[in-house]
Design a protein around this nucleic acid. Sequence first.
DNA 1: CCATTGACTCGGA
DNA 2: GTCCGAGCCAATG
Length: 101
Amino acid sequence: MTPFTEKVISIIRDIPEGRVMTYGQIASLAGNHRAARQVARILHSMSKKQRLPWYRVVNANGQIVIKDDTAYNEQILNLQIEGVKVDHNGTVDLEKYRLQL
DNA sequence: CCATTGACTCGGA
DNA sequence: GTCCGAGCCAATG
């Protein structure tokens, strides 16, 4: 692991309910604003081994972009449970739910 | 160890 | 609004 990875994980764990963050935002906080992809990758691999609210992470457009359909639906479901509205495109209102720092 | 991949992002046309 | 190209770098094989 790298400090970057751990930082990303801790940041994600701190995302409160009903809020979301973008990959780029997290990457930036973790030290590399260009490591958005790694953030995504970390989620992909870590979510299998740890409990992370990975579903609170969306891309820069507030849209859920994920290949695995099962996880995709799961993400939307979890967000809705927390009160985040997701439209039929799998997009959330960033202006409203994005966690500002 | 080297090569490929990818839940991304940004800027330009 | 769209499409394209390039950057970035950890994880995987």
